[in-house]
Write a protein that binds this DNA or RNA. Structure first.
Lengths: 129, 129
DNA sequence: GCTTGATCCTGTAGTGGCTACAGGATTTAT
DNA sequence: ATAAATCCTGTAGCCACTACAGGATCAAGC
């Protein structure tokens, strides 16, 4: 059993974030030492690492918790998992498309905006009626 | 001079958002009618539309305000504008790259996760030590 | 035993950029 | 006269943390 700082080091999840996850009920309350300090087991650290991986993959905290629950609950239902993952992939793809649209629009907008023009063409276009 | 609802309609910025912009000092305080209701000029609506365009292009509210200030302040300094825009484009490109990395990682993770496997391979990989 | 510094605790507030009320006043249309 | 729309101020909620304040405890060195 290790203290919260060590759990943070081993899992990659920040100390304050670990306490936040506990407050929010994302992870169960850990054991406590006689001095009231939190004590984490290897399984606790595993949960935190799992959550970290999900968050790094862009899953919302809610989805990450859902995946964690699926992972803990005996029958790891592949269908539910892949539904969540597919939904997330769709939203990632939508975001990519949106950003590419933005990139193109910004490119157009700044195209004539290099020389020290007195009346900046980009501002002009942003002002357009 | 029009009321806030009409200004919202003409600019595409929501009523609550307009009041928020005012509170935050993004736009100047508008005129007031005798009954204390806000009154917007065509120029006010132009500012709101300008901000809306910037936000739609993904600029932060701070950057949007900076662009608005540049646009208002006589000498529309093209260099400053294009520096802001280029910085933003860079961050958009970084976000795209990051999301594409995510998309690939998600694709790999879910690759074997279609059949009704008892031990979902995606969860297994998320659990990996 | 004493000091120093690291670590831990609880609780609260701030971030960005809105959005959604509550609770009331006024205006406009019927 | 009444109903519905619009407006006002002020506050709280959203996401997922992050950053304190103010204190308690612990470990290491002297």
């Amino acid at each position: 059993m290790i203290a919260i700082g060590e759990a943070a080091r081993q899992s990659g999840v920040g100390i304050e974030t670990i306490r936040y996850y506990e407050r929010e009920g994302i992870v169960p309350r850990p054991a406590r030492a006689a001095n009231n300090r939190r004590l984490y087991s290897a399984q606790d650290v595993g949960r935190l690492r799992f959550l970290k991986r999900c968050r790094d993959l862009g899953f919302s905290l809610g989805d990450a918790k859902a995946l964690l629950d699926l992972s803990e609950g005996g029958a790891a239902d592949c269908a539910e998992v892949s539904a969540l993952a597919k939904g997330h992939m769709d939203s990632v793809r939508r975001k990519i498309a949106e950003l590419q649209r933005l990139e193109a629009a910004l490119g157009e907008l700044t195209a004539n905006c290099a020389e020290g023009s007195v009346d900046c063409p980009m501002l002009g276009r942003l002002r357009m009626a």
